[in-house]
Simulated assay, not measured.
Amino acid sequence: MHTSLPDFDMPTEEQVHLAAESFRLLSDPTRIKILWALLQGESSVACLAELADAAPTAVSQHLAKLRLAGLVKGRREGTFVYYTAADEHVRRLLVQGLYHADHIDRDEAPRPARTSHHE
């Protein structure tokens, strides 16, 4: 059926799994704040913690996961590490996600589940 369509293309299993992992990592509000701050320029954990209104230890854990996923890069200077967003792809992902959030029909959108646990 679809395969008979010209130009029909499906991503590979690896592409699907890597994209899903990136979206999973971007599903956390604190990580979105951290990445958005890093898109403005290089920053330290302490500064990111203040901007994201999160504990420095939590920010460090988020950054470790984002770094392993290739979404952020770190640069060591003495005992400090300064982080930046990995590339322009990260900016496009966040801009599109935030743009979409601004254009959701609030009456039709599913409500996020409320949780009582804190990080």
Rank of each mutant, 00 (worst) to 15 (best):
T84W: 05
R106V: 04
S116W: 05
L68A: 14
R67F: 05
H89F: 12
R75I: 10
V90H: 04
A109C: 06
F23D: 02
L51H: 09
G78V: 06
A54N: 06
L35R: 02
A55T: 10
I32Q: 12
R114Q: 08
R31T: 03
A69P: 07
R114G: 07
D87V: 03
R31H: 01
D9A: 14
D107K: 08
F8V: 09
A55R: 13
K33H: 03
H62S: 06
G70V: 04
A49Y: 09
T84H: 05
M10W: 04
Y99F: 13
E50C: 01
Q40I: 00
D7L: 14
K73Q: 12
H17L: 11
G97W: 06
Y82W: 14
S43H: 11
A69C: 02
L63Y: 01
S4W: 00
G70F: 00
Q15P: 00
H103P: 02
S22A: 15
D107T: 10
L5F: 09
R111P: 00
L94R: 03
V45P: 07
A52T: 06
A113C: 01
V45S: 12
E50R: 07
E42N: 01
H118I: 03
A58F: 07
A20S: 14
T79N: 09
L5Y: 05
H118Q: 07
L5D: 08
D53C: 12
A19E: 13
Y83H: 03
T12D: 14
P29Y: 06
V95F: 15
L98Y: 07
H103M: 02
P56E: 05
R91H: 08
D53M: 09
C47D: 14
E14L: 12
S22D: 14
P112K: 04
R106M: 07
A54Y: 01
D28M: 01
A54Q: 01
W36M: 06
D87G: 06
E88F: 02
G74T: 02
A37C: 10
Q40F: 05
R75E: 15
A20G: 11
A55D: 15
Q15M: 07
T57W: 11
R114Y: 01
A64I: 00
V81T: 14
H62M: 05
V72C: 10
G41N: 04
E21R: 15
A19V: 11
A49I: 02
S27Q: 06
M10C: 11
D105S: 03
R76A: 12
P56W: 00
W36T: 15
K65W: 07
W36N: 13
Q61F: 07
A101F: 06
S4P: 00
D87C: 05
P112W: 04
F8S: 08
